[in-house]
Amino acid sequence: MKTIADLLHEHPFFRGLAESDLQFLASCGENCVYHKGDYLARENSQANHFFLIRSGRVAVETFVPHRGPLCLLTLRGGDIFGWSWLFPPYISAFDARALEDVRSLRLGGECLRNKCEQEPKLGFELMKRFARIATERLQSARIQLLDIYGPDHQGHTA
């Protein structure tokens, strides 16, 4: 049976991290299964966890009155969800809903913060990884805002 450290090792987010660091972080993690329709996180609720998605699809959504949930992004195996646990007030900005059965590793936010404080070198490495993903997501969101497939970007057809 695989240990939490083994599962951390398999996930792209932790790729290349020293075995000793994975062992150090493993105590923060637990293996979780979410069924279709389950929420991994809810908007405006306590952001206590960082999720490593191992398989399955997750919708990142926000609720729009009179319209319902609006999907901003879908995530899948190899992706991560959640960085609201990093900063006060530790409140989730979005819903995360399983679109199918999802296997994930869930790491406690407070536990991770404490580990990063204890081992600043490891903490900085993790922050760099979060920053890179946050930057990629920001860039994606900006491209979405550009509406590149709309009529303003369709070239010069007469």
Binding site: A59, P69, C71, Q139, Q144
Partner: peptide, 21 residues
Amino acid sequence: VDHGDGTWPGHIGVITDPLQA
């Protein structure tokens, strides 16, 4: 697709995401 709802079975986001993955 850039915009979709939960019934869409593919990726929602931008095309660079699946390319990157």
